[in-house]
Amino acid sequence: MSQSAVLAELVDVELEVHRPVYTRILHPLTLRVGRSTSLAVVGPSGAGKTTLAAILGALQPPSGGTYHFAGANIADLSRKESARFRNLNIGFVFQNANLIDERSAWRNVAIALTDPTLERRAVEQRCREALADVGLQAIADREAALLSGGERQRVAIARAMVKNPLMVIADEPTGALDQTTGRDVLALLYGVTARGATLVIVSHDPYAASLAASSVSLVDGRIAE
């Protein structure tokens, strides 16, 4: 992989916690993720997949090692800086779509557009477009609580993509869906690479992982070869 093709580069990244007891969740690991590609993270429960995704998404600073994203060092960012970093670069899709139930679909997408200088009209326009991209233009005004599981997850994908992030991180995105619905959602998710984003997908589902350009397998906090 050439240097310019690398989006995220983790070198000797590790994570230890000291509370409640000293635990080493991730052993030092080195990992490179390319631009506009997809990476599956697989492994048994408790292996550290979510933890790795959290570090990649700058939700959690590593306790050792270096993490460069598009050439910039992410590992030592302050909380405020990493919030800004996430805001600009990362889209998240969670197992449960994590929508605000009382708000309409487009207003849930709007949560991701945090820039206070954006005009309300422009925000709504962009959100509706993002929903159209996932085939939900018809239900943009429906309250999130009324949406089906598959629709919720598609709203979440629209929310992740509305900012055109460089990386989309999805943790068990189909874990709560039936097979058919899951496949539709996977198709949409993998579609983000065609729009210049890198997809990191954490999944138990061999089919979901098999779609990825590359994969990494974690066992007990280490990369298993």
Binding site: K80, A83, N87, L88, I90, N98, I100, I111, T114
Partner: peptide, 16 residues
């Protein structure tokens, strides 16, 4: 908490 955590993940600063 869930919503606030979500906003934080989306890049809202603590101050916001």
């Amino acid at each position: 908490t869930r919503e606030l955590g979500l906003r934080s993940a989306m890049g809202f600063s603590r101050a916001r």
